[in-house]
Design a protein around this nucleic acid. Structure first.
Lengths: 135, 135
DNA sequence: TTAAGTGCAAAGGCTTTGCAGCATA
DNA sequence: TATGCTGCAAAGCCTTTGCACTTAA
């Protein structure tokens, strides 16, 4: 059973994902790596991300139509709130989520392995603007 | 302000979406249309879907890594449960969802416009199999 | 030394678009 | 008739892959 190598690219990649605090996609990681002088190809970024996912180090999230974003896996589950005005991403977590999942598992005799709640709308600042413009 | 035409293709397309009970993607709609003798192109399918979305007739859902699925918009919100064993899609709805959204809106001063909860796991039948195989 | 990682370019899905012709109101 | 619809083929994204070369252990 072959192990996985610790390479320079992978270290850089993982550091970048950590530093990004979630909310980066593959292309952005590639851009950040190269812009700080690191030599890496987009293909390697994708391969690294796939590996990290498989190892459970990183989670891939689909934020609506925005595409795939990557973040370090953390012990406590959280969900995302995306502002369609300014694009801001807010993380939150609610105990109701746990209750909801328990309920669904029970009602449908289903074993839930992965959950993703995505909420889209307008943040405090962008709310005013939509009200003003009346759009 | 131009109106939108009611055309044969669009009628067919909408009927197919209705008949599918959710859970079809563009390619599948194209396949079903042509296989029942209708003449339509994939581009027209996409254009129709975009229009229906804009008119609020149809919702686009991203079921995890499965891609885009389309369904007739219904008055009552619902969410999806996808079995990673057999691919079955189960719809459900829970009053906890409403409460969770109210809470998030309040806590983050955010106005939620669109919500999507996606749960992935194993249904009743597929649960046994994963237990047996011990995988 | 040797399995694993990497870059490059090509290929694969899915979705959109430009354009010329067609159809609906 | 005029605006909007359609098909076709091409192009655009994002992501994966084949292959030859490089590197970590």
């Amino acid at each position: 059973m072959g192990g996985h190598l610790v390479t320079a690219r992978r270290r850089v990649l993982l550091d970048l994902i950590r530093g990004a605090g979630g909310h980066v996609d593959a292309k952005e990681l590639y851009r950040r790596a190269t812009s700080q002088g690191e030599s890496i190809s987009l293909a390697t970024v994708y391969r690294g991300l796939r590996l990290f996912k498989a190892l459970g180090l990183v989670d891939e999230r689909r934020l609506g139509q925005l595409g795939c974003y990557y973040e370090i896996r953390r012990p406590v589950d959280h969900q995302h709130l995306v502002c369609q005005g300014c694009g801001k991403v807010i993380e939150f977590q609610s105990p109701l989520m746990r209750r909801l999942i328990d309920q669904v598992q029970h009602d449908h005799n289903f074993s839930v392995a992965k959950t993703e709640l995505y909420l889209q709308g307008y943040c405090q600042e962008c709310k005013w603007q939509t009200e003003d413009s009346g759009r």
